[in-house]
Amino acid sequence: MKMAVISEHLGLSWAELARELQFSVEDINRIRVENPNSLLEQSVALLNLWVIREGQNANMENLYTALQSIDRGEIVNMLE
């Protein structure tokens, strides 16, 4: 549920979040190519990849820290 809210509000910031979460330029470009027409779909794809990559370590605290690092703390505030 929280992931959906984050995806809805990320907009163009999804790529900046991807870099903050240590995704490569290739990963970011692949997300763009696979989801060409929708920032929402790109955001969802990023968060899904992050959960798959991090497994047990994919917790909201880590995601909140990354969001705050890219000056998107207002998204965190909405969810708390």
Rank of each mutant, 00 (worst) to 15 (best):
Q68W: 10
L63T: 04
I28Q: 04
N37V: 07
F23E: 00
N62G: 14
G55Q: 06
S24Q: 09
L21D: 02
L39Q: 14
E16Y: 06
W50S: 02
V25Y: 15
N77S: 13
A45L: 03
V33P: 02
R53W: 03
V25K: 13
I31R: 03
W14P: 02
N29L: 10
V25I: 10
Q68F: 09
R72E: 03
R30M: 12
S43T: 02
N59H: 06
R30A: 08
E41Q: 11
L47W: 03
G73C: 07
D27T: 08
R53V: 01
F23P: 00
E8C: 03
G73R: 07
P36G: 07
E54G: 10
L40G: 07
E80R: 09
E80C: 11
L39W: 07
R32T: 10
V76W: 06
T65I: 08
L49Q: 13
K2T: 08
V51H: 14
A58E: 09
P36W: 08
G55H: 06
G73F: 07
R30H: 11
I28R: 04
L63R: 00
E80S: 12
N62R: 14
F23Y: 05
D27H: 10
M60Q: 03
I6T: 14
E16K: 11
I75A: 00
M78W: 09
E54W: 03
A18G: 11
Q42P: 00
L40W: 15
G73V: 09
N35C: 06
A58W: 12
I31H: 00
Y64F: 06
L39F: 12
A58Q: 11
R32P: 01
N35V: 09
I75G: 04
S69V: 14
V51T: 14
L46K: 02
S13F: 06
E8A: 09
M60F: 15
S38G: 10
G11C: 02
M60V: 15
I28V: 11
I75F: 02
R72K: 10
E8F: 05
S43D: 04
H9N: 13
E26K: 12
E61G: 05
R53C: 02
A4G: 14
A18I: 02
E74W: 11
R72Q: 07
N35G: 01
A15P: 13
L67C: 02
D71N: 13
E41S: 13
L79C: 14
Q42W: 02
V5G: 03
Y64V: 08
V33Y: 06
V33A: 15
M3D: 06
V33S: 13
N37A: 13
I31K: 00
M60T: 07
E20N: 11
N77C: 05
A66K: 07
E34W: 04
Q42Y: 01
I28A: 04
Q56C: 09
N77R: 14
L12I: 15
N29F: 06
A4V: 06
L49Y: 12
V44I: 08
E8Y: 02
N35A: 07
E8R: 12
I31E: 00
M1T: 14
R19T: 11
E61A: 15
I31Y: 05
S43M: 00
Q68H: 13
N62K: 14
R72H: 10
N35Y: 05
S13W: 04
L47Y: 00
R72M: 06
S24A: 08
S13K: 10
L79Q: 11
A18C: 00
R72F: 02
A45P: 02
S43E: 00
N48C: 04
E54F: 03
L47A: 01
V25D: 12
V51M: 14
E61V: 04
S7W: 03
A4E: 10
L49W: 06
R32N: 06
L40K: 15
L17H: 03
N59D: 15
M60L: 07
K2G: 10
E74G: 06
V33T: 15
N37D: 13
L67A: 01
Q22C: 13
L46W: 03
L63Q: 11
A15N: 07
N57S: 09
L40S: 09
A58V: 15
N77D: 06
L17C: 02
E20F: 06
W14R: 00
G11H: 14
V44G: 14
Y64I: 07
L21C: 02
R19I: 04
M3Q: 09
R19Q: 12
L21W: 03
N29I: 10
E41Y: 07
L49G: 11
V51Y: 13
L21S: 03
Y64N: 15
L10S: 01
G55T: 10
L40A: 11
Y64Q: 03
V51W: 14
V5C: 09
A15F: 12
D71K: 12
D27Y: 03
E34G: 09
V5H: 08
S69P: 05
I75M: 08
N29D: 14
F23N: 00
L49D: 09
A4I: 15
E26I: 07
M3Y: 03
L63F: 03
R30G: 08
I28F: 02
S24V: 02
A58H: 08
E41C: 09
A66H: 10
N35Q: 08
N29S: 09
A15H: 08
E80F: 13
G73L: 05
L10I: 09
L40Y: 09
L79H: 09
S43C: 04
E34F: 09
G73N: 06
E61Q: 15
K2M: 10
S7M: 01
E8S: 09
K2D: 04
F23W: 00
E74V: 01
N59T: 06
A4S: 07
L79Y: 06
E8T: 09
S24Y: 01
N59L: 09
I75V: 11
L47P: 03
E41K: 15
H9K: 11
E20D: 04
M3A: 05
F23A: 03
N77M: 10
I31D: 00
L39A: 11
T65F: 11
N48S: 07
Q22H: 05
E74R: 03
R32S: 10
E8G: 07
L17S: 01
N77P: 07
I28Y: 05
L63D: 02
I28M: 06
L67E: 02
S7P: 04
M78I: 14
N37P: 00
L17M: 08
V33D: 13
N29C: 09
A15Y: 15
R32I: 10
G73Y: 06
I31L: 10
Y64S: 08
K2L: 07
N77A: 14
L40T: 11
V51S: 15
A18T: 01
N29Q: 12
L49A: 10
N35M: 06
E34M: 07
N35I: 05
S69C: 14
E54L: 04
I75E: 02
S69E: 12
Y64M: 09
N48Q: 08
Y64L: 09
A58Y: 12
S43F: 00
E80L: 06
L47K: 01
S24W: 00
W50V: 00
L49M: 14
E61D: 11
A58I: 13
W14Q: 03
I75S: 05
W14E: 02
L46F: 08
L17F: 13
L21H: 00
M60G: 01
E34Y: 04
V44N: 15
D27W: 01
L79E: 06
E74Q: 05
F23L: 05
I28E: 03
R32F: 14
T65K: 12
N48T: 04
S43N: 11
W50M: 02
P36H: 07
L21V: 05
L10V: 08
L12S: 15
D71S: 08
V5F: 15
E54S: 10
S38F: 06
D71V: 01
L63A: 02
S43P: 02
V51D: 10
S69W: 07
L10G: 00
H9V: 03
N62C: 10
S38A: 07
N37S: 12
E41N: 15
N48W: 01
I31Q: 03
E16P: 11
E34C: 07
A45N: 08
R30P: 00
N48E: 05
A66N: 04
W50I: 01
S13E: 08
R30D: 10
W14V: 03
Q22D: 08
S38N: 09
